[in-house]
Amino acid sequence: MGEFMSVSEPLLDIRRVSANGISVNVATAGDGPAVVLLHGWPHTWEVWRPVLPTLASTHRVIAPDLRGLGASDKPDDGYHLHTLADDAVALLDVLGIERAAVVGIDLGAPVAFMTAARHRDRVERLVVMESLLGRLPGAERFLANGPPWWFGFHAVPGLPETVLAGNVGAYIDWFLRVGTYGLSGVPKPLRDAFVAAYEDPRTLHCGFQHYRAMPINAALIAEAVAEGPLRMPVLALGGNVVGDALHRQLVPVAPDLRGAILERCGHIIPADAPDALLAELGPFLAESPAV
């Protein structure tokens, strides 16, 4: 488990499909119950490579590049959570899938949450990790010294694109190095793939558009919570960066909530502790469908 999977592996199908008005790059593999894997920043779908072969042995795995990132289309707008959640469900429609488990990390976690909240009849199970959900209570300890510095930097229109010109690779590589400190870190092929993706100026800009949408997205999360609790089973996982803050935020939101902290694991869980992640995901996804 946890081995890097070659792009030439015949199990893996990588293609572009039209969904919700954009072209989405998506990797699919395996057969069985569907599970959608949503990456974060500065990742692409490839962050899931270390766990994808094992998941695909029992599930139909669907790993798209988020809007604006990787090889998906890069429009200047559409980075509000409602649109991003609709992207995920439109992808399910194109693939002929009625219901799926949805898994998200980092920027992908709020997208996964909103997909579950906005399309409750389409999401069987929800897994979120190493992120926060807007301004929901529970993250006070994590935010005691303020949000991470780069949130503000990335949100200033045009500034990071200008400041980082010529130094994007070093900047992205820094996040990948400090984001893991566990047993393995980010394998070099993954690190090189992420750096290459974000050195594209358009991808870099769209990545920052995700951050610039965060104030509106926080309001959308609050509205979703006000509509009532999530009824599907929810699993919140933390490394030793965000820790249990996300689980704390979800306590009043998800009555069927489980949580775990993965020891000796940094922020980029699939790359840093793939076996530990699989040990949590496998039993959770294998449970009988929620009624």
Rank of each mutant, 00 (worst) to 15 (best):
G2P: 11
G2S: 11
G2W: 08
M5S: 11
V7E: 14
V7G: 09
S8N: 14
S8P: 00
S8F: 13
P10F: 10
I14M: 15
R15T: 15
S18C: 07
N20C: 04
I22T: 12
S23I: 00
N25H: 15
A29S: 08
D31R: 14
V36S: 07
E46A: 14
R49S: 13
P50H: 06
P53C: 04
L55E: 03
S57H: 08
T58R: 15
T58N: 09
T58L: 06
H59F: 11
R60P: 03
I62D: 08
A63M: 09
P64K: 08
R67P: 00
G68N: 07
L69C: 12
D73E: 12
K74C: 10
P75D: 09
Y79H: 06
L81F: 05
L81E: 06
D87N: 04
D87F: 01
A88C: 12
L92A: 00
V94N: 01
L95G: 05
L95A: 03
L95D: 04
E98I: 00
A100P: 02
A101W: 00
A101S: 13
V103W: 00
G104M: 07
D106P: 03
D106L: 06
G108C: 05
P110W: 04
F113R: 01
M114Y: 00
R118E: 04
R120T: 00
V123C: 05
R125L: 01
L133R: 00
G134W: 07
F142V: 03
L143I: 08
A144H: 08
N145S: 14
P148W: 10
W149F: 13
F151S: 09
G152F: 05
E161N: 08
T162L: 14
T162I: 11
L164V: 15
G166C: 07
G169L: 05
A170F: 02
D173L: 12
D173E: 15
W174E: 15
W174T: 13
F175G: 13
F175H: 15
F175A: 09
R177V: 13
G179V: 01
G179E: 08
Y181Q: 10
Y181M: 10
G182H: 02
P189R: 11
P189M: 12
V195S: 05
A197C: 09
Y198H: 12
Y198K: 03
Y198W: 14
P201T: 01
T203S: 14
C206F: 07
M214H: 11
M214A: 14
P215N: 12
P215Y: 11
I216W: 09
A218S: 14
A219P: 03
A222I: 06
A224D: 02
A224E: 02
A224I: 01
V225H: 10
L230P: 04
R231F: 01
A236H: 01
L237M: 04
G238N: 01
G238T: 07
N240H: 12
V241K: 09
R248N: 15
Q249A: 08
L250T: 00
L257F: 08
G259L: 01
G259R: 00
A260K: 11
I261T: 15
C265E: 10
I269C: 06
D272N: 04
L278F: 03
S288N: 05
P289R: 10
A290T: 11
A290K: 02
A290S: 13
